[in-house]
Amino acid sequence: MKGILVLLAGFALLGVGLEALGLAAGEEHHGGFWNFIPLWDFAFGFVGAAILGLVARGLLKPLLARSEDWYDAAEGDR
């Protein structure tokens, strides 16, 4: 687990460095205002994954999850 965290930290630093490089090079940006917030994509990746997880596990799964043979049973009734 420690190795994974070190790897993630390395990639995080790489992401920060690349963003700084892009700003220093004066690269042209397109998109919504959020794209101009420093480290936006890092935060969006983290929060976006959390939102998707919450929606999927917290909202959809309780509504949609059935036993694995649910369709077989439903079709067997016919």
């Binding site: 994974i4 790489l14 992401g15 920060v16 690349l18 963003e19 490089l21 994509d41």
Partner: peptide
């Protein structure tokens, strides 16, 4: 471009950190 590379690396790292925690 550095911007494209930074954007994708940061998105993936953000999601990976969330996964590692939860």
């Amino acid at each position: 471009t550095a911007g494209h590379l930074a954007s994708n690396v940061q998105l993936l790292v953000g999601a990976a950190v969330l996964f590692a925690l939860g």
